[in-house]
């Protein structure tokens, strides 16, 4: 019993963090929410075609990403010829309404 305690908490301490009272930053390259750089996008719709779940939709002058359908696979970021869409590190994406999960971006036609 004492051995367990000696090698356990006395050596390691408490290893869990008090998230969400302290913030957490994921590593670089973590596949988080896809974000669009509105200046670079030219609406050539490559991302809409490669997205496996049709989470990315184009309307004239507007790009919408439905986070409820997105599976965070990163295909859109890999295939965009202008690197206009990147996988950011954001992971706190909850919303109280279903509509809150759709993010809109204003892009060139």
């Amino acid at each position: 019993m004492l051995e367990t305690i000696r090698k356990g908490v006395l050596k390691k301490g408490v290893v869990t963090d008090r998230y969400p009272y302290v913030p957490y930053m994921p590593y670089d390259g973590h596949l988080g929410m896809p974000m669009v750089d509105e200046a670079k996008c030219t609406s050539d719709k490559v991302c809409e075609q490669v997205c496996p779940t049709t989470a990315i939709r184009f309307a004239p002058g507007q790009l919408s990403i439905d986070l409820g359908l997105c599976i965070f696979c990163g295909e859109c970021a890999r295939r965009c010829p202008h690197q206009a869409i990147i996988m950011s590190k954001e992971f706190e994406l909850a919303s109280k309404r279903r509509e809150g999960l759709v993010r809109f971006y204003v892009v060139q036609q």
Partner: peptide
């Protein structure tokens, strides 16, 4: 895993 690939479950 997350550090090497960006995904804890080795996706992508």
């Amino acid at each position: 895993n997350d550090l090497l690939t960006g995904s804890r479950f080795l996706r992508g």
